[in-house]
Design a protein around this nucleic acid. Structure first.
Length: 856
RNA sequence: GCGAGGGUGGCGGAACUGGCAGACGCGCCAGACUUAGGAUCUGGUGGGCAACCAUGGGGGUUCGAUUCCCCCCUCUCGCACCA
């Protein structure tokens, strides 16, 4: 009789319906068990899910399902990061309204996630484009405004011509837009900012209190925050009322300052420039501004500058030194002004050499004396103070505090801490985002929209041209408003919020998605937060993950909850990659454009290119829908978890998918082909008849596998090794020739296989579990526990090494004493051969494991 | 330049605190069952005829090193004039 074939389509559809009907994954609000909040970064609804999503969400689903079976009370929600540019671009290109496009994409992707069998609590779904979500963005914004954590300022901003909007500093990578790679330009605009810098210290400190985060993410955040301790000093400009403020990490070198460098864009640069230098300085400033565009990331450029004609006075020495405008001084860091100490700073040294400025040594190495005339580079190490008046002879490290104190005494400075982190600019000149809830009144100025008028709804009727100005500015009905204070005609803010605002607190909304009086309910948030396990891509290391931490702290300080950090454990999964193929004439090729290693269009060789992150432009994408049709969700999930550990990049391989499919088929047949045996089996009774031979081996293997799979999932998220352990047990069961003698042992093992496999391949597991005669579905079944008695072996195999090389093995009782083992080893024939005629010099015994005999 | 993480069979990857290197899967080879099989099952599969040699290369510690230490090569990622 032919065995019924494994039909993934029928099985998966059936179980998805069952789960849906039973509300299987609804969070039990008052359920028993410790809470566990597992969260995957919610997707942007671009239209279809991609393999990156499949991997991300498969990892999360294993965690969620595993913990449900372990009896934890699991919160596992999903939603949509659904404001953003692609919707708007689609509208411009195809004439679809962003809201229509977004709704359709969400519907489609939700279906796809359903087809993957992910265990989400869908009734908690949030979508950031909906007024009932973004009204709370606005609410939070107003609270931040009240607290002084949101403010408006005219400033130099990053402008992306491709996206026709402003970008935050975090969204500029190597001078390019993080999204579209256009070269970012500088613009001066009136912008709303969130004062993330108020939390710089705390955000930094807590990076040392997040042991569940990958070290490299923490390091990236620390670098981005960029704390440095030093001093601030004020220099009076000679013959002027102006003062130049500088920040330095090396106050010890103050006496070695021989000139001052200002950023070309520094407001004082033009102010203090003398009449005769003006033309030159302005020309220089214009040139620096023009060159500054690609500047970031381009590495070091040649040091250039120009003398302003002005001098400033060293507050401690009274020395007058020239003030230069210099191209390497950044306006965006510190104060935009630098005290230049050529002897002890490499950049100042290079600059001084170009312009013939003096080099004054104030620190000597412990064992040498520096000669300014012959120095080839700045001396930046520690040493002993010289040429520094009363500080001479001190260690420079001591002089740092001493000189800072002297500055403070002179009223010309103080100890301070400086950060690279800038405030977060959130204004975006685009339509498809959350409106910023303020109005501008001719009489009252900037007026917040009253809380009771929220949400400020994004108007639906809008013309999108992609021309660049804020599209909302064209919407008369939106722009024209009444001043909430005086009632006169006023103008609404027409910029929208950066969509990273939306995603900075969505994990809180999931805790009480229907809350109507506050963004989230405090007790719900405190019940579920922090997220126990957060899973997503590394690309958000300093974007979303920093903003979300900031929001959590700011909301705490608004009194909305009482915890400090949003994500207890973070897993950053690797990218999904695949081999590329390229033809000289036609560039990247899809797999179907290659036949017999040749390009189907021109017949030239289609070269196998490097393995790269899946992307449409490289034509190396795999469509999850196609995979699900062909192999099913279980196979898709299983392969993406088996092929590599989650944090590493995954090389997609069609053959590997095939392998995963085969394995599921193998488990399927293991059950169906042995149905009679399994049906006849009594449950395995602990303490029943003594086992021996292969039945004992299988019984022990079953419990060892349970132990290993449990540990691999729970302790390390090493799903690849967990799956391989299940495969080993399945292989052993195919070899089990006494299954009819001990059907109980066989059935115990088969049931373990099905249960252990269920977080990875839930549909086929449900199906087999039911066919094994279980009334309760797998997801409600307790995760198996290894029987400690079954794990104990009564014999141990001792590996025998002779001079470090494996030569033989011997089996002894586990509790054998060393003398007994030594005796057994010496009696071993092979061992005797290898040691014949030699003297035993050393006998090393690692109990239960290995013997190493050193002979000679 | 600075910082972090990698380099193990033909390929993806195992080896948790030093203890049988290459689990598991792919691929490949052979056999069985078949009209047939790209299905399935079984066996084999790092190199070398062997002694032996093999975890990027070279040193070291150790009875014993993929694992610990030092030097070097290489790849990936992040930062990059941050005063």
């Amino acid at each position: 009789m032919a065995t019924e074939r494994y039909d993934h389509n029928a099985i998966e559809g059936r179980w998805q319906e069952t789960w849906e009907r039973d509300g299987a994954f609804r969070t039990k609000k008052d359920g028993a068990g410790d809470k566990y909040y597992v969260l995957e970064m919610f997707p942007y609804p671009s239209g279809k899910i991609h393999m990156g999503h499949v991997r991300n969400y498969s990892i999360g689903d294993v965690v969620a399902r595993f913990l449900m079976m372990r009896g934890r009370n699991v919160l596992h929600p999903m939603g949509w990061d659904s404001f953003g540019l692609p919707a708007e671009n689609a509208a411009i290109q195809h004439g679809t309204h962003p809201s229509v496009w977004t709704r359709e994409n969400i519907a489609n992707m939700k279906t796809q996630l359903g087809r993957m069998g992910f265990s989400y609590d869908w009734p908690r779904e949030v979508a950031t484009y909906k007024p009932d979500y973004y009204r709370w963005n606005q609410w939070i914004f107003l609270k931040l405004l009240e607290k002084g954590l949101a403010y408006k300022r005219r400033s130099h901003v990053n402008w992306c011509p491709g996206c026709a909007t402003v970008l935050a500093n975090e969204q500029v990578e190597d001078g390019q837009c993080w999204r579209c790679s256009s070269a970012v330009e500088e613009k001066e605009l009136e912008q709303w900012f969130l004062r993330i810098t108020a939390y710089a210290g705390e955000l930094l400190d807590f990076t040392y209190k997040l042991p569940g985060w990958p070290e490299r993410v923490l390091i990236m955040q620390r670098n981005w925050i960029g704390k440095s301790a030093g001093a601030e000093a004020v220099f009076k400009v000679a013959d002027s009322s102006a003062e130049i403020r500088i920040f330095t990490t090396r106050p010890d070198t103050l006496h070695g300052m021989t000139f001052m460098s200002l950023a070309a864009a520094h407001p004082l640069t033009s102010k203090i420039t003398t009449a005769e230098r003006r033309a030159e300085v302005e020309a220089f400033a214009a040139r620096v501004k023009a060159e500054a565009k690609p500047g970031r990331g381009a590495g070091e450029i040649k040091k250039e500058g120009v003398f302003t004609g002005a001098y400033c006075v060293n507050p401690l020495t009274g020395d007058k030194v020239p003030v230069y405008a210099a191209n390497f001084v950044l306006m965006g860091y510190g104060t935009g002004a630098v005290m230049a100490v050529p002897a002890h700073d490499q950049r100042d040294f290079e600059f001084a050499k170009v312009y013939g400025l003096p080099v004054k040594v104030v620190i000597n190495p412990p064992d040498a004396t520096l000669d300014p005339a012959s120095m080839q580079e700045a001396y930046v190490e520690d040493g002993v103070m010289v040429n520094s008046g009363r500080f001479n002879g001190m260690k420079n490290t001591e002089a740092m505090t001493a000189i800072t104190a002297a500055l403070a005494e002179a009223g010309a400075g103080r100890e301070t801490v400086n950060y690279k982190l800038r405030d977060w600019g959130i204004s975006r000149q685009r339509y498809w985002g959350c409106p910023i809830p303020v109005v501008y009144c001719g009489t009252c100025g900037t007026v917040p929209v009253p809380y009771e008028e929220l949400p400020v709804v994004l108007p639906e009727d809008i013309k999108l041209t992609g021309k660049g100005a804020s599209p909302l500015a064209e919407a008369e009905g939106f722009v024209n408003a009444k001043c909430p204070k005086c009632g006169k005609a006023a103008r609404r803010e027409t910029d929208t919020m950066d969509t990273f605002v939306d995603s900075s607190w969505y994990f809180l909304r999931y805790c009480s998605p229907k809350a109507e009086t506050l963004p989230f309910d405090r007790s719900d948030a405190e019940r579920w937060m922090p997220v126990d396990q957060y899973i997503g891509g590394i690309e958000h290391a300093v974007l979303h993950l920093l903003y979300a931490r900031f929001f959590t702290k700011a909301l705490r300080d608004l009194g909305l909850h009482g915890f400090d950090e949003p994500f207890k454990n973070l897993l950053t999964q690797g990218m999904v990659c695949k081999e590329t193929r390229k033809c000289h004439a036609h560039g990247f090729l899809y797999p179907e454009e290659v036949r017999d290693g040749k390009c189907v269009q021109c017949g030239t060789e289609a070269k196998a290119g490097p393995v790269e992150k899946m992307s449409k432009s490289k034509k190396n994408v795999v469509d999850p829908d196609v995979l699900i049709d062909e192999y099913g969700a279980d196979t898709t999930r299983l392969f993406s978890l088996f092929a590599a550990p989650p944090e590493k990049d995954l090389d997609w391989s069609e053959d590997g998918v095939e392998g995963a499919y085969r394995f599921i088929g193998r488990v399927w047949r293991l059950v169906l082909e042995n149905m009679d045996t399994l049906n006849a089996a009594e449950p395995y009774a602990v303490g029943g008849a003594t086992l021996e031979g292969s039945a004992l081996d299988v019984h022990r293997a079953t419990h060892r596998t349970i132990k290993k799979v449990t540990q691999d999932i729970e302790e390390r998220f090493h799903f690849n090794t967990a799956i391989s352990a299940i495969m080993e047990l399945v292989n052993a069961l195919y070899q089990f020739n006494e299954k009819d003698a001990r059907p109980d042992v066989f059935k115990e093992a088969v049931e373990a296989v099905v249960l252990l496999l269920s977080p990875f391949a839930p549909h086929v597991s449900e199906e087999l579990w039911q066919r094994l005669g279980n009334a309760e579905p797998v997801y409600k079944t307790a995760w198996p526990r290894p029987d400690p008695d079954a794990l104990v072996a009564d014999e141990a195999t001792i590996v025998i090494q002779i001079n470090g090389k494996v030569r033989s093995k011997v089996t002894v009782p586990v509790d054998a004493a060393e003398e007994f083992v030594k005796d057994a080893v010496i009696k071993d024939e092979k061992t005797a051969e290898w040691t014949k005629g030699k003297t035993l010099r050393k006998f090393v015994y690692v109990p239960g494991k290995i013997v190493n005999m050193v002979v000679g």
